[in-house]
Nucleic acid binder design. Structure first.
Lengths: 232, 232
DNA sequence: ATTTTGATGTGTCAAAATGACGCACTAATT
DNA sequence: AATTAGTGCGTCATTTTGACACATCAAAAT
């Protein structure tokens, strides 16, 4: 038993892990193996240990429950509504990640009866306020992808211009003109040309690209990019 | 005494409140009246009550310690390093706010021996990891001001184009061409023309503007603005 | 008293970025 | 046999951006 002079909340980390299949955004969920909400789907996550940071907690829980590891996680919001967990006062730090679905085969861990991908828009009923958490993560995505070149984390190492466009269209909920899209993407100077694909798409062998991390690092050292509408 | 089966962290909220004096960005700090770090300067903030959200906590503590209230607060990061508080394990949710300095006269509250503004870059030694917190808030500012029209919260209701430009220059750490700046700001359609100022600046009576909240709301209902470099 | 500094108003022009769009080809699907 | 989807290639008008000059005069500095 641990005693405190004042009541303390429990602290958890929850992860919204996004994947992409060329058409739709997906979210990684686990089936809860324990009460409360046993049998319901939920975000991977769990209680913070007293000697770890929330970041360490998020990575640990994600690995334990789904097998997914070595990924880029980013805090995006704290959910602290008073009644959000029926057991006790629980404050959660929500994280957001983008991964290549093909990089992982999912396992079911400790507290999770199973882990699997769900299409956004076809989510099952979720435990706690996890629907709200996913909603907010989804809203942050466009902004995040405008700011940092993290969209590439959702695609294979090498990708066609069409695949990249599909991703941006899915995230931003629009369509782009194919030629203008390619022109603008190329003009960033961050796409390394990987030559022609060995596998045909429809009729041609499309050119492939990869994200040029070095070029990005070199460039972002230098300057801040201006932007609209208050970028001046 | 409150007992738990597992150790729980204490939870706090800390506020980085920015002000602007026409030249420099300022931060609102309090002088701690209690141990630890008694006598040191620190961010306004404090322990979350068990029946309030972190947002409510941030607003309450800010009001108690400085008298500042009714302002826009936004979560920006959770700081959870294990040793960041000498008393016990404390996880803090950091908030960021922009206010008109002239709107408030500071009071010294409960746990605070005093509250006052400090120029960024001339900060005193701070308690805990509050320097890191301010650093991160400062880094978020440009991005935040590009995304939302919150810069206006730092200026008086009516402001000259020059004042607005100074603000953007201070936040982004650059200079802009006066005419191009005005052209672009005006083109947003979010500045209401408030006519000529009754007080002279140097030689002329500059035109004044105010932020047109209605125009902004009406516009942002409609569409997402595209941006660089991954805005496509 | 004189000089310097800073804020203001007013427009132009070349370069760059953007958005819209047409045509031809063919593998895979229907 | 017809349709669909992905690919390659490029143009053109419009919009946006960035750079820049001159005149004025109050306030501040010397």
């Amino acid at each position: 038993m641990y005693q405190y002079k004042y009541p303390h909340p429990a602290m958890t980390a929850d992860c919204v892990v996004f994947g992409f299949d060329g058409k739709q955004l997906h979210v990684l969920l686990i089936e809860r193996g324990l009460e409360p909400y046993k049998g319901s789907w939920a975000l991977p996550g769990g209680f913070m240990k007293i000697d770890e940071t929330v970041e360490q907690c998020a990575l640990r829980e994600l690995k334990e429950e789904t097998g997914v590891e070595d990924i880029y996680l980013e805090q995006f919001h704290v959910f602290s509504a008073v009644g959000r967990d029926p057991r006790e006062r629980v404050v959660t730090v929500a994280f957001l990640a983008l991964v290549r679905k093909s990089d992982f085969r999912l396992i079911a861990g400790d507290d999770a009866a199973g882990a699997s991908w769900f299409e956004l828009g076809k989510l099952p009923p979720l435990a706690f306020d996890h629907h709200d958490i996913i909603d907010m993560a989804r809203k942050r995505l466009p902004e995040l992808m405008r700011t940092k070149p993290i969209g590439f984390k959702l695609l294979d190492e090498k990708f066609s211009m069409n695949e990249l466009q599909r991703l941006y269209e899915a995230v931003n909920g629009t369509t782009y003109d194919r030629r203008n899209f390619a022109r603008k993407m190329s003009s960033t100077g961050l796409l390394r040309d990987e030559g022609v694909s060995p596998v045909a798409a429809h009729n041609r062998f499309p050119n492939l690209y990869s994200f040029d991390e070095k070029a990005y690092k070199a460039e972002s050292e230098g300057h801040f990019a201006p932007e609209n509408p208050f970028n001046v």
